[in-house]
């Protein structure tokens, strides 16, 4: 662990991330996104396992397969592949590659696993209702001054503060 490098200055990281978002809008009209790729992966699985469900025009994921579209043929899928690659590269450079279930010493691994699954489920539902997650529906939307982005981020962090007390044993 002594070789692990320190984290980047947050303001520098934010500035570079902002330039990346700007570059993204300039090139592709759109900003960042990550939950979109997960939804599309689920749609792909449905297409293989339960094709009759997704072919129903009233189903939520129908938009991803409408008119013979391929759910995974989308820029957000490529972005998430990049996200994994980028994280991995930083992990190599900073010597942080390690298979590890991270949790507070006061918490059992089992409880951390349950909390992580439930957290993911809540986020999966939330990002569906909100039509995006923190990166696409929040950050990138704020960059173009979309009202939805400001409302989503305010409600997301507001809810976090409102309910933080109930979940304090997971972290403190």
């Amino acid at each position: 662990m002594e070789n692990t490098k320190k984290y980047m200055n947050p303001y520098l990281a934010g500035f570079i991330l902002g330039l990346i978002i700007l570059f993204s809008f300039w090139h592709t009209r759109e900003g960042l996104g990550s939950s979109g790729a997960v939804k599309r992966a689920v749609a792909k699985i449905e297409q293989i396992v339960v094709p009759s469900h997704i072919e129903n025009p009233n189903s939520y994921f129908h938009k991803y397969v409408k008119n013979g579209k391929e759910p995974l043929k989308n820029r957000l899928v490529f972005m998430v592949i990049g996200l994994l690659l980028g994280g991995f590269i930083s992990g190599i450079i900073n010597n942080r590659l390690k298979l590890k279930l991270e949790h507070s010493p006061k918490l059992t691994s089992k409880k951390r696993i349950i909390a992580a699954v439930l957290g993911g489920v809540m986020f999966g539902i939330g990002a569906s209702f909100a039509r995006g997650c923190a990166s696409g529906g929040g950050l990138s939307a704020m960059a173009v001054f979309a009202t939805s982005g400001f409302v989503l981020v305010a409600v997301m962090f507001g809810t976090g503060y409102l309910f933080a007390w109930f979940f304090r044993k997971l972290w403190l």
Partner: peptide, 10 residues
Amino acid sequence: FAGIGMLLGG
């Protein structure tokens, strides 16, 4: 939903 998801999952 997303806010509670962040608290649970980090």
